[in-house]
Each structure stands twice: as C-alpha cells, then as structure tokens.
C-alpha cells in the first residue's frame, strides 16, 4: 500500500473516530466533581481499617473485567456508569439506601481525567438526593494507585 493511501486511510479512521470521542465528551468529566467530595487512596485505606459495620457503602462503577481482577474488599460491582445500563444498575442498587448514608464510589479504569464513569455516577447519586457521596481519586489507574501501593485487594465476582 502506498504511503499516500495509508495516510488517507488514517485520516478517514480518525474522522470516523470523531463520532465516538464526541459522544464521550458529552459525559461529565471527573473534574466536575467538587474537590471536597474526593477521597485519596491512603485516606480511604486508613478509613477502612475499622469494623465493617462502620464502613461506607463501597461501589465500583467501572468495568467488570477490571473488578474481577482486583477490587477493594467489601465493595460491590455497580457499573459501568458511563453507560446507561450501568447508571440503571447503580440507581437500582441504592434504592433502599438511606439518603444520608456514606457512599464511596470508585473506578480506576483510566487516567482520572479520562474516566468515563466516576462523574456520571457521582452526579447521578447527588441527583437522587444522596448527601454523603465521596469519590476515590485515582490519578492513574487502580493498579498504580491502589494495588501497587499495597492496599487491600480482593478479586473475583
């Protein structure tokens, strides 16, 4: 294939890619989450060293293949909230949860600014009236900022 043809194909591919990235841009960015509602990994890890009855409801709002490999012990899978079916699952999960109950959501699929899930989950819960929602701030990904830091991990469904 000539170089010109290859470049043409690349241009076409990038053009078609635009539709996907535009759709992704419609989702609220993680930066829209107030700093006061973020919790850093070390702080959350310390806060989990308490009896389970005192712990917040921990919800993983990312992708199942990642959850199965590694998640925070005691957390439940409720994602992916960047997609409508994930939001539906999240809303269903919190139906019976008190509006003032502490909830921590997390994902870690991608670099923070690229995560398609956490902001959607946060705003959905706030819209439902939950007043104590925190989001685990995972700067790079769950592997880098949680697993490799040696914080507790579980795996499987």
């Amino acid at each position: 294939m000539s170089s010109i043809a290859a470049k043409l194909m690349l241009a076409l591919a990038l053009a078609s890619l635009g539709a996907g990235t535009a759709a992704a841009a419609d989702a609220k960015a993680a930066a829209s989450i107030p700093a006061a509602d973020l919790v850093e990994p070390d702080a959350l890890a310390k806060s989990l060293q308490v009896p389970s009855a005192s712990r917040p409801l921990l919800l993983h709002v990312g992708f199942r293949t990642l959850f199965v490999q590694a998640h925070i012990p005691g957390s439940e899978y409720a994602g992916p909230t960047g997609q409508e079916e994930g939001l539906t699952a999240l809303r269903s999960r919190v139906l019976s949860v008190a509006k003032d109950a502490p909830i921590v959501i997390y994902c870690g699929c991608c670099p923070w600014s690229r995560c398609p899930n956490v902001a959607a989950a946060y705003h959905a819960l706030r819209t439902l009236g939950f007043s104590h929602v925190k989001v685990l701030h995972i700067d790079q990904d769950f592997g880098t900022n949680w697993v490799e830091k040696g914080y507790p991990v579980a795996k499987g469904d």
Binding site: Q69, G143, G150, Y151, V153
Partner: peptide, 17 residues
C-alpha cells in the same frame, strides 16, 4: 517488596504491575 502502605492481603488480586 511493595513500595509502602498497608501490607498486602492474601487475596491480592494481581501481581505487581
């Protein structure tokens, strides 16, 4: 050894990256 933080649990899901 792991960099820092809490000791790994027996359920550590994945080897260090």
């Amino acid at each position: 050894p792991r960099a820092h933080g809490a000791p790994p649990t027996p359920h550590a899901a994945a080897a260090p990256a």
